[in-house]
Design a binder for these strands. Structure first.
Lengths: 204, 204
DNA sequence: CCTATATGACTTTCGGGTAAGTTACCACCA
DNA sequence: TGGTGGTAACTTACCCGAAAGTCATATAGG
């Protein structure tokens, strides 16, 4: 049986893995876990499906690898900023800036942790949970500080506000994906302008 | 061949259709288009799959029907509020209140128009586009007013802010879905508190 | 008896996953 | 220096289950 190109490319495993992960993260991030097909990832990477299974075991394994890569990247950065001494809105803006700088070349990464189509049980759910919790905890901590400054300690209010805050980051990331020409710096300045518009508008 | 109950229920088509649509909207809204199976909808409705195909033609047809139902509901309400004379943040809060009141019994409806797993081409995409555009246009109009009050007419700023605004509504709806015991009234009051916390925090 | 309502059982399609093999390269030895 | 065998990289062709979609038929009521 003739099998053109079988084994002829000779790309080292680690190189190939990063290449696959880069493409897979993008697909998962853009379309969500369920709507992403392994065959599509393979095709985009110019390789065959079994190679992916050989390296990552399963579709879930592939997703987990993406999560591990992106999750620590994002969570570490947020943690770094949380260790600083800014509080309230200022801390929020700093976090935004950090995310913009970090994800400029891979904006879709953010979506991995908030994919509603990912399995809700099993290893993936655990893995998502780890990072979503880590990010969520930090967000909640910052939000609680902000709310505390305003004299509000209501747990549900904090929970809802955290959800809103993550939603805002999510929206900005999605908008950024659709405006690839915008730099991280421009995004940051834009956010400052948006904030002033809100505050100014609410004071009237 | 014995087929128990075939044709014995005698439910008028229109009644059956609304019943199916109510269940389908919930499934599509909660799980997304891809993750929803027609068989599940049929089972939950206590009927067989072919009946759904008989009435709606295809899974996409079923989704479109849900969109038409939910889309006009939501868009009409937003339009109604937009015709009022409130502007800026106030108009935003009024719109939120309208959404809470309208969707209290069907909070998942909101998600139909922002489902990333829905097909991005074909009739569905068109249909989503119609309603997303209609809602998006109204949102953008309101946002532009708000930004104008703050002396900002930048088109990209307005576009980004619109995205953020829709993201906020989205977050609140999702949070609401996960807190079923919260009433529309409670949500509205919560939003007022959240807004004051943001404004207060930014003024420091 | 005709039509609307309804169904069980089937075919088709699609995507995750696998079996079995092919090619290239390198280390080792005569 | 050239053969050789082991291994890493890679492929085609398939399996299988789940879900979309269809067909032929059954029941009830005007």
């Amino acid at each position: 049986m003739v099998r053109p190109n079988a084994g002829t490319k000779g790309v080292p495993r680690l190189d190939r893995e990063s290449q696959i992960l880069a493409i897979a993260s993008q697909e998962f991030g853009m379309r969500g876990f369920t709507a992403t097909s392994v065959a599509t990832v393979a095709k985009r990477a110019g390789i065959s499906k079994p190679l992916i299974y050989n390296y990552f075991g399963s579709k879930e394994g592939l997703y987990e690898a993406c999560l591990d890569l992106g999750g620590s990247l994002v969570a570490d950065e947020i943690e770094r900023i949380a260790r600083g001494d800014s509080v309230g809105i200022e801390r929020g803006m700093e976090t935004l800036g950090g995310m913009f700088a970090l994800l400029e070349q891979r904006r879709y990464l953010w979506r991995l942790f908030f994919d509603v189509t990912a399995p809700s049980t099993g290893a993936i759910a655990d893995s998502i949970g780890v990072y979503a919790d880590r990010i969520g905890k930090l967000a909640e901590e910052g939000v609680a500080e902000l709310m505390g400054l305003a004299g509000n300690d209501d747990e549900l209010d904090i929970s809802a506000m955290t959800s809103v805050w993550l939603g805002i980051v999510d929206s900005l990331m999605n908008w950024w994906v659709e405006h690839p020409e915008q730099t991280a710096e421009q995004m940051m300045q834009r956010c400052v302008r948006l904030l002033t518009a809100i505050v100014g508008g609410a004071e009237q």
